[in-house]
Amino acid sequence: MDNEFEPKLLAFVCNWCTYAGADLTGTSRIKYASNVKIVRFPCTGRIDFMLVLKAFANGADGVIVSGCHPNDCHYTSGNFHARRRWMLFRELLDFMGIDVRRIRFSWVSAAEGAKWADVVNSTVAAIRELGPYTDYQKAASYLAGNEDVLLNEKEVTL
């Protein structure tokens, strides 16, 4: 056993393309990194940007967001709406110094089982390089990890 850092990844995927694509990866017996937990959504349009932040706050080191290719949305336009949202969201996060390299956006269709394996593997490799995302976790955990700071806080005496 070595103590190499194993990244925790969360994948938010749409039911119609990427989830089916990930299923195909399995049925095609393609091996890929097991660091990812897949959460299925009806559509990329349903993936609230808060979910990404919640994932980081709760210990994810990286997030994958994936759905149908443009023009392939089961609901016609969900992925177009999602794309706009991600365009703004990503730039805003970058402006606030949140590490956008940890969010991987992708289009994976139901036929692209091999691509899904590739997306996961390359993201896991990239996050492994970046290390755990302690910055956000620490900011999110309110008091935990800040004990030394709290010790120095003095009661206000009048």
């Binding site: 709406h81 794309r83 991600w86 703004l88 992708s106 289009w107």
Partner: peptide, 16 residues
């Protein structure tokens, strides 16, 4: 309207 609408040819460079 920015987010409740879209254009099919919106350009980004980070979705792969």
């Amino acid at each position: 309207n920015a987010l409740s609408t879209f254009k099919p040819d919106d350009k980004e460079n980070f979705i792969g």
